[in-house]
Structure formats: C-alpha cells, structure tokens
Simulated assay, not measured.
Amino acid sequence: METTQRQQTESRIRELRQAIEALEQELNKDDDAVKEHAMIDHLDQYIDAVDTKVSSLKAFWQSLKQEWKTR
C-alpha cells in the first residue's frame, strides 16, 4: 500500500511539474506578444516621424522651386 501511495505522489508531482512548465510557456508567449505590440507601436512612431520628415522635405522643395522661379 505504501508503494502505491508513493507512486501516486510521484505521479502527482510529475503532473504538477508539467502544469508549471505549460504555464511558464504560456507566460513566455504572453511576454512575446507584449514585446511584439511594443515593437509595432515603435514602428508606428518611426513611420510617423518619417512621414513628418518627408512632408517637411516636400514643403522645403516647393518653397525652393518657387524661389528659383522668381530669380
């Protein structure tokens, strides 16, 4: 009877370890998702900055063309 109880205890410990490993994997997936969202947000900010620079360059180019035409 004692051997059976020990085997059951060991089996339960294995199950708990597997459950903990599964939870850790899920947590890592969540961390990766958070990192991906942060990267996407950063990319959006970068694209906005590039758009602003392009708009500024276009405005500068238009004013430069206008200045050349008046000379």
Rank of each mutant, 00 (worst) to 15 (best):
residue 1 M to C: 00
residue 2 E to V: 03
residue 3 T to P: 00
residue 4 T to L: 05
residue 4 T to E: 03
residue 4 T to H: 02
residue 4 T to M: 03
residue 5 Q to T: 08
residue 5 Q to G: 00
residue 9 T to S: 02
residue 9 T to Q: 04
residue 10 E to C: 03
residue 12 R to A: 12
residue 13 I to E: 05
residue 14 R to E: 08
residue 15 E to P: 00
residue 15 E to S: 01
residue 15 E to Y: 03
residue 17 R to C: 03
residue 18 Q to M: 10
residue 20 I to M: 09
residue 20 I to A: 14
residue 20 I to F: 07
residue 20 I to T: 06
residue 21 E to M: 11
residue 21 E to V: 03
residue 21 E to C: 03
residue 23 L to W: 01
residue 24 E to F: 05
residue 24 E to P: 03
residue 24 E to A: 12
residue 25 Q to N: 14
residue 25 Q to E: 13
residue 26 E to C: 00
residue 26 E to T: 01
residue 26 E to K: 11
residue 26 E to Y: 07
residue 26 E to I: 00
residue 27 L to M: 08
residue 27 L to H: 13
residue 27 L to K: 14
residue 27 L to I: 09
residue 28 N to K: 11
residue 28 N to S: 07
residue 29 K to S: 06
residue 29 K to Q: 08
residue 30 D to T: 06
residue 31 D to F: 10
residue 31 D to G: 04
residue 32 D to C: 12
residue 32 D to M: 15
residue 32 D to S: 14
residue 32 D to G: 11
residue 32 D to N: 13
residue 32 D to E: 15
residue 33 A to F: 06
residue 33 A to T: 10
residue 34 V to H: 01
residue 34 V to W: 09
residue 34 V to Q: 10
residue 35 K to I: 07
residue 35 K to A: 11
residue 37 H to N: 04
residue 37 H to R: 13
residue 38 A to W: 01
residue 38 A to H: 04
residue 38 A to K: 12
residue 38 A to N: 08
residue 39 M to V: 04
residue 39 M to I: 05
residue 40 I to R: 13
residue 40 I to P: 01
residue 40 I to V: 15
residue 40 I to H: 08
residue 40 I to N: 08
residue 42 H to L: 03
residue 42 H to G: 05
residue 42 H to S: 12
residue 43 L to Q: 15
residue 45 Q to F: 05
residue 45 Q to D: 12
residue 46 Y to N: 07
residue 46 Y to A: 02
residue 46 Y to L: 08
residue 47 I to T: 02
residue 49 A to R: 12
residue 50 V to L: 15
residue 50 V to G: 01
residue 50 V to F: 06
residue 51 D to N: 15
residue 52 T to M: 10
residue 52 T to K: 14
residue 52 T to P: 00
residue 53 K to R: 09
residue 53 K to W: 00
residue 54 V to L: 14
residue 54 V to T: 04
residue 55 S to D: 09
residue 57 L to S: 04
residue 57 L to V: 05
residue 57 L to F: 06
residue 59 A to M: 09
residue 59 A to N: 09
residue 61 W to Q: 13
residue 61 W to R: 13
residue 62 Q to G: 01
residue 63 S to W: 09
residue 64 L to E: 15
residue 64 L to I: 04
residue 66 Q to I: 01
residue 66 Q to F: 05
residue 66 Q to W: 02
residue 66 Q to P: 01
residue 66 Q to S: 12
residue 66 Q to A: 15
residue 67 E to G: 05
residue 68 W to C: 11
residue 70 T to L: 13
residue 70 T to K: 15
